[in-house]
Design a protein around this nucleic acid. Sequence first.
DNA 1: GTAACGCTTCGATCATGATCGAAATGTTCA
DNA 2: TGAACATTTCGATCATGATCGAAGCGTTAC
Lengths: 229, 229
Amino acid sequence: MQTIAPELAELAALIADPGRAGILSRLMDGRAQTASELALVAGVTPQTASWHLSKLVERALLKVERRGPRRLYRLATPLVAQMLEGMMTVAAIDPHPARPPPRIDAEMRRARTCYDHLAGELGVAVADAMRERGHLHLDQEAGELTASGRALLGDLGIDLRAPARGRRLLCRPCLDWSERRPHLAGRAGAAVADLALQRDWIRRRPQGRSVEITEAGLAAFRDLFGARI
Amino acid sequence: MQTIAPELAELAALIADPGRAGILSRLMDGRAQTASELALVAGVTPQTASWHLSKLVERALLKVERRGPRRLYRLATPLVAQMLEGMMTVAAIDPHPARPPPRIDAEMRRARTCYDHLAGELGVAVADAMRERGHLHLDQEAGELTASGRALLGDLGIDLRAPARGRRLLCRPCLDWSERRPHLAGRAGAAVADLALQRDWIRRRPQGRSVEITEAGLAAFRDLFGARI
DNA sequence: GTAACGCTTCGATCATGATCGAAATGTTCA
DNA sequence: TGAACATTTCGATCATGATCGAAGCGTTAC
């Protein structure tokens, strides 16, 4: 019986190196990074990072684009991010409740981007608040934006009409690996994150995927969404 | 910056062995298997399989239950199956269109179970047909059963009310790794697969996850669902 | 109790691949 | 053209973990 198992193992082996896992994790915000930056994240020399990166590109998990003497790496497709989300969700499950739980950086747990939408306490709080106010149905497996939810986002200036190309779904749950509860993903989730960045509610920290919530953002998330953060 | 990356790598390393990948893949139909059977699937001796299995159980990807002198292994949670689905989807992407595409067993491609629902050509055909007849909206990221879809399944004797415990969603897309298109998962998908097994539309093959479509099944899927298979 | 069977543990061997220093390549800018 | 810089390639070393034979453990059946 021939199955996909060998390809599955090959794929997993690619993620099984701590350096490469760090690189992939770092790229989950969807932005591109230089090889040097990724070497730093992985904690290896540029030569070693280069070797890792070439393997990831060869297997089509990353794509690379040359910008002058630098090379910018990013996730090849959203499918890869979705896969990593799923793996992180399982990775966050502590198999031995006895041993100390995986220490997650406080800033990452507080607020971060997950590919293109909000995650961490902030992401879950926004999703919870929208759910409580009847804007949203969100389950571990699927999500739906209600009429009032569409109205809320519309009032904020978010255009929810589908783009001509790409049939990406409006509303999708994404299981938060630090909170272990779903937050808002899909087009709607990306739109909210975009809005928050544009209005300076959140700011990307220079390093990593965590974001800083501004004073204005704290007020906005509380007042406009009713989030308890 | 402390992230989940080390745990991600550790998890991936567990799947990175061809034997363990085969074992996990074999268990994706949700049924339990003995250690001996899994050793066969993995293509290793019972000792080696035992070592692999203990690692998988220790990391809480599998759970084990003793039945007399045998030990039965199964996936620990549906979350693990969902993660594997996502990985298989990426694993099925051929990074080098030049080199021969991963040879997938014809029976597996034709019809199989994916954890608890239908997959392969059959699964995709049923989902497509339901979509064409307006029973279903199904996208790569989310799914929704229409009123007519609920009626169809209701007429077939499927009770779609949620069980008291567990808030599993009714309708969910699952990206088919052999067809690269979504098929029907979630409670509705599981119910359809259950029905098909009960009415002898499909029969599990003794080995592996592929299923045989009976004559009656062929007629039923064509007549009742409008599937082109 | 004892034999049969399924499975696991132990120990030794062996192969794979991650790593970095050194050197080469390639790109931009002056 | 040459200098500066980012990145890659090459080569050698080293650590990890997959493997199986042999032996041990536990359960069931007679």
